[in-house]
Design a protein around this nucleic acid. Sequence first.
DNA 1: CGGTATCCTTCGCGATACTG
DNA 2: CAGTATCGCGAAGGATACCG
Lengths: 119, 119
Amino acid sequence: MKIRKEYTCPLEIIHDILKGKWKTVILWQINHLKKVSLSQLEKDIKGISQKMLLEQLRELREFGLVDKINYEGYPLRVEYFLTEGKGEKIIEALEIMQKIGREYIEEQKKKNTDKKVGN
Amino acid sequence: MKIRKEYTCPLEIIHDILKGKWKTVILWQINHLKKVSLSQLEKDIKGISQKMLLEQLRELREFGLVDKINYEGYPLRVEYFLTEGKGEKIIEALEIMQKIGREYIEEQKKKNTDKKVGN
DNA sequence: CGGTATCCTTCGCGATACTG
DNA sequence: CAGTATCGCGAAGGATACCG
């Protein structure tokens, strides 16, 4: 369990929520597919292991960003999805950051072409 | 250097931007104080070492979220501040996440009092 | 005061094997 | 298909000493 007993500052949680290599990508992907199975996520998120995926999904659920439904019967089937409140809200934050990411990429490209051109 | 040579996906950057225990807190604190010296940040951010602070500040500067001014003369003096574009923008994202953090804290409190009451 | 370098510990995470 | 358990390595991060 990586979640602390108690938080005093909301900022500490921000860190824990997005801590780890995969959380943001998982959230992003779930938002993209809306309702998605474990195996689907595993296919779509390149390089992630099932163990990591499950670990991170569990944490995201504990924070109330993600939820899941277990369907009865065989073969087993589950659906992961963002929670209406916090889950969908955090996508807004990720979108802002994603734009900043784009800006950064653009700047780097520009720097590189400038270098090649002359200086 | 923890920043990669090149990014293909903006989401990878989101992770790198907020990676590490301290980045969000540092950004938050700089935003709060607007222009701030290293020693001031060190005092205000509880538990951080000077080494970590400088390390993270450097990364934030490389991403263009933070910038600094070096003043001439002794004693040495610098001022760290958020960049107008990306720096101030990311605060919006942090604010959203901070609210989610608050929600989570409230829920936990409620759960605890409910437990005490009965069940 | 601001910043760099080094050493050492802890923990994230990948690989792998196993269960219902 | 969904999920748990174990183990080992490398990176993150804390402490500390030193430089301009």
